Computed example of a mutant assay.
Amino acid sequence: MLYKEIHIGKFIKERVDENEIPMERICKFLGKDEESVENMYKSRSLDADLLLRWSKLLEYDFFRLYSSHLILYAPPAAVNKSQHKSEKIPYFRKNIYTQEIKDFIMKRILSGEMTQSEVIKEYSIPKSTLHRWLQKTDNTNG
């Protein structure tokens, strides 16, 4: 379950290993010593500024792991007409699914790991949206 439990240090370490980034370069870029970097690999979470630096160094959007988690596991917001959008912070629609999310969901259905109704219930994906994804999958495979 890629998005359910996020251990950011493990993901960072995996990306470092894949790209074969030397420790010396990491330490210099982050302004940290080797011990601090090794401790980051063991950390379940990191400060946002530090995670941003890792994202730049490794050319990977680690924040997207958290966004994907919110899309899949956060309960849908209650519809309340009295709530208004803040003019001071950006507003993001929750119902925008990335291709990674679509692939993740489709893989679970096509492998038989979950049924369509289980996906709809677990991830609060509208039935019509899921059917649209399945139709596109059928059209590309058939």
Score class of each variant (00 low, 15 high):
82 S>I: 11
31 G>F: 08
106 M>E: 05
115 T>K: 11
87 E>Y: 09
1 M>Y: 08
108 R>Q: 15
98 T>W: 04
72 L>P: 06
140 T>M: 12
122 E>T: 15
42 K>P: 01
30 L>D: 06
36 S>F: 08
38 E>V: 11
104 F>G: 01
108 R>P: 00
132 R>G: 04
16 V>S: 02
97 Y>P: 04
106 M>T: 02
118 E>C: 02
42 K>F: 05
74 A>S: 15
91 Y>E: 10
75 P>A: 08
72 L>H: 08
125 I>A: 00
41 Y>E: 04
91 Y>F: 13
87 E>N: 09
61 D>Y: 02
42 K>N: 11
40 M>G: 05
37 V>K: 00
64 R>N: 15
78 A>P: 01
29 F>K: 03
105 I>R: 00
115 T>H: 05
84 H>E: 13
88 K>W: 10
16 V>H: 02
8 I>L: 01
80 N>R: 13
30 L>K: 07
53 R>F: 08
41 Y>T: 00
26 I>S: 00
8 I>T: 01
11 F>E: 15
113 E>H: 06
128 S>W: 03
48 A>E: 14
75 P>F: 06
138 D>W: 07
69 H>F: 14
98 T>E: 13
137 T>H: 10
133 W>V: 02
74 A>C: 09
8 I>V: 11
35 E>A: 14
75 P>M: 06
76 P>F: 01
75 P>W: 04
140 T>E: 15
86 S>K: 05
77 A>Y: 07
30 L>A: 07
12 I>S: 03
126 P>Q: 11
6 I>H: 09
